[in-house]
């Protein structure tokens, strides 16, 4: 079945290449989230960016 699928066109290998690239990127993001974002202070700082945006503002 596999063979049959690809004999249609050699171009059809590209979706698989794309899928591989996706999986690798996904793993990379997971690694980043697991290890790169271990610093809690930094995480908290970024996460609270929406909240500290109007200090000193005139309104409120």
């Amino acid at each position: 079945m596999f063979q049959q699928f690809f004999q249609d066109s050699p171009l059809l290998v590209w979706p698989l290449v794309g899928l591989a690239v996706f999986l690798l990127s996904f793993i990379a993001v997971l690694l980043h989230v697991a290890f790169g974002l271990r610093d809690r202070r930094k995480r908290d700082h970024i996460a609270s960016l929406p909240l500290d945006d109007e200090n000193g503002g005139a309104s409120r």
Binding site: S25, V29, H32, V33, A47, L51
Partner: peptide, 14 residues
């Protein structure tokens, strides 16, 4: 703040 910043990173890229 948002519940999980880590989750938002995975959310975005995927």
């Amino acid at each position: 703040p948002v519940y999980s910043y880590r989750l938002s990173v995975v959310h975005f890229w995927s």
